[in-house]
Design a protein around this nucleic acid. Sequence first.
RNA 1: GGACGCUUAGUUCAGUGGUAGAACGUUCGAUUCACAUUCGAAAGGUCGCUGGUUCGAUCCCAGCAGCGUCCACCA
Length: 694
Amino acid sequence: MSTDPFDKASGQDWPTAYNPKETEDKIYQLWMKSGFFTPENLPGDRPKKFITCIAPPNITGELHMGHALENTLQDIIVRMKRMQGYKTLWIPGTDHAGIGAQNAVEKQLAKEGTSRHKLGREKFMERMWEWREKYGHAILEQFKKLGLSVDWTRTKFTMDLDYQKAVEKVFHHYHEKGWIYKGERVVNWCVRCATAISDLEVNYVPEKGKLYYIKYGPFALATTRPETKLGDTALAVHPDDSRYKKYLDQYLEIETTDNETPADQPAQIKKIKIRVVADYSVDPNFGTGIIKVTPAHDMTDFEIGQRHDLPSVQIIDERGRMNENAGSRYQGLKVAEAREKITADLSDLGLIEKIEDYEHNIGRCDRCNSDIEPLLSKQWFLKMKDLAKLAMKAIEEKQVRITPERWIGPYKTWLENIRDWNISRQLWWGHKIPLEGEEDILDTWFSSAIWPLATLGWPDMKNKDFQEYYPTDFITSDRGILFLWQVRMIFSGVELTSQAPFKDMYIHATVLTKDGKRMSKSLGTGVNPLELIEKYGTDALRFGLATQATGLQDIRFGEDLLVMGKKFANKLWNIARYTQLKLGEDYQLGNTPKNEMAGKIEEVAKHITSQIEGYNFAEAANHLYKFIWHELADKYIEETKDKDDQETKDTLAYLLVTSLKLLHPFMPFVTEEIYSRLPWLKEKNLLMIEKWPV
RNA sequence: GGACGCUUAGUUCAGUGGUAGAACGUUCGAUUCACAUUCGAAAGGUCGCUGGUUCGAUCCCAGCAGCGUCCACCA
């Protein structure tokens, strides 16, 4: 039916517009079927290897722009390396995401009018595994939409049986070294999640509160949390503060509210004795320069307590309510209620000097946004001193190279100020602490920390994969998890295998909204990459992101980029279509041309290669765009339209094929599709394994 | 409080020690010839502010301002 000469020349239907929807899934299936994502299946002798480490997405996750950017960049490098003749391996997988996944299922249960406690542990765990079956692989399916060339035969989950064994091995390793201990410390306690969380999982948000000046014997002191006064075991001042020198190490008698007066009766005075200690952590310029010390409910106060051997009195329980130590008058009240009640009592007793408006930072749970209650709690800790040294050395000796280099500073600063890692969580979903009689779960990052090892068969160091593919060459991620994940992978790798788990670590840009705000589903500022793929095609998304990925500047995401990408894919399609017509049905590929245009594209190829190797994705993408559109299409094709000689044809063919190869890492689908349509290429492979033109 | 990054056309961003570029948008023109997801052309910027170095600064240095991010968390 078609009389289109293009169809005739190419031997197949070749519409005037590129249609990603008809191409992408089909091409991905072709790649899967080829087996070339698995390094052992790659043709030829490949002495050089290139292994990349993925950031496994959470099973709670949905593809977001960060994933799209991160994995696109990684895929660009992997695809180029594969074409350069490297034996390439990139393992996909998912993370069980302890607290995040548990919260997701708990939310679901709440909708059903039940809870994990009502279900019981066993039933709840069944629900967790159901969740993981249903949603766990959904995000990996979405990675296929992105065109990622990952080895699906090696897909890993952080709670696979072998992975669990690896985690246990790590725990025992540290335990035997004496680096793991159980200690009572003030930890960040999420009242809603009912678990301790790490410092890194606390977000501090500014909030308008009050600063209460409370009379304490001979002086007044300022606090934002009058209710914690029930747990005070000392007062503290700066050692050099002359105002309070005469009170140092004295026990002062002060008047306060009697916490045993029944709640329905007016407040009454009680006299207590309290010690004044000198501590350098006190800022003499805050408030009146004297502070109350509540070792059980404040990190700093806990440390002061340790230094001065102060008792700790816990007055708030794990549900965020005042406990028996708070006295019968306040017991059972929520923290906020207790604050109100005690303020009223103090006021009635004339013990409040003044109340000021005060803006300060309140800790919130990163996962559920509830207030954090610092609580004294028994937790497992991992000593960080030696591990931090290893991580420091790895960077200083360039076992791991960080790009851009400006991240070296924050990396070191973090290690210099590191505290022991609280590795226990009061959750049900995750890796159990592998000791007799222990009920707690390990922090999800404890298992993430060994991802590059465990995915390659560690702790079996004789394992073929481990032998051949460890350590990996390259990892890229967002700066947001530099400390949560990257640093921990580095010291884990060095400690457990004597080798850093990757050689190059690239911190990529963060995708922001057009207004420069963080993209977040909960804020409603997120953009769904799948919808963009639906609208513009994967290649357009990938190319659009790549053209903005400078590594220095965050990306303010607008769809303009994708419009450009989509047009470019179509332009390429039509350049190929034109070339096909020009060459005609009977074209036989001649010699590789040696002329100006051939020279030019060879220069382009060199430039692109070095730019990708230096992680200048934007420069590489833009340069390619400019050459293909404005040199090849606008100039060369226009100028040779009336020519019909063999050299012109050979040059066109050469330019097209070389362009397809160079563009393949950025736009894998359209390039592969076009490549498959060129009948004059004999003995061709899939483009994804053709030889890189440098 | 500490650190880092950014500030260039209407918008999103490149870029260079010798008075600036792209994409998208806008305006005008073209159309049986690969592509209207096109082609040609145009308009549009005292390169955040103030000083300094320099023959010369958008680019180097200092200070300031605004925006953003990370770390700390001061009660």
